[in-house]
């Protein structure tokens, strides 16, 4: 049963790979990378159970955290064109988000 789920996940990863390579717009690719990360987390969890060592779940949790941070970084890059803009700006010139 877990093996079947793992095969389904790998097929899903292949489909996402096609979207990430072919994707016409930037957002297709961002979405593809984000859901590819989620698929990797699930695949690692299943892989642990297939191999008979469920300890891999810890690593899957770490991957989930990294995936989240990377997506936030990419989206912040698109909103502000820089990673160095603080989330709350102190007024002044150049402020795009007022609150």
């Amino acid at each position: 049963m877990t093996a079947a789920a793992l095969i389904a996940l790998l097929i899903g990863m292949l489909l996402l790979l096609i979207r990430a390579i072919a994707g016409p717009t930037l957002y297709d690719r961002v979405l593809a990378v984000n859901s590819f990360g989620t698929k990797t987390v699930l695949a690692l969890g299943l892989l642990g159970f297939v191999m008979g060592r469920p300890e891999f779940l810890d690593i899957a949790i770490l991957y989930a955290l990294i995936n989240f941070v990377a997506t936030i970084a990419i989206l912040k890059f698109f909103r502000y064109r820089s990673f160095q803009v603080p989330l709350v700006r102190r007024g002044g010139q150049g402020g795009g988000n007022n609150g």
């Binding site: 990294i66 995936n67 990419i74 890059f77 990673f83």
Partner: peptide, 10 residues
């Protein structure tokens, strides 16, 4: 996956 993506975007 985490760090070098951010650095490459920068």
């Amino acid at each position: 996956a985490g760090m070098s993506t951010a650095v490459l975007l920068g």
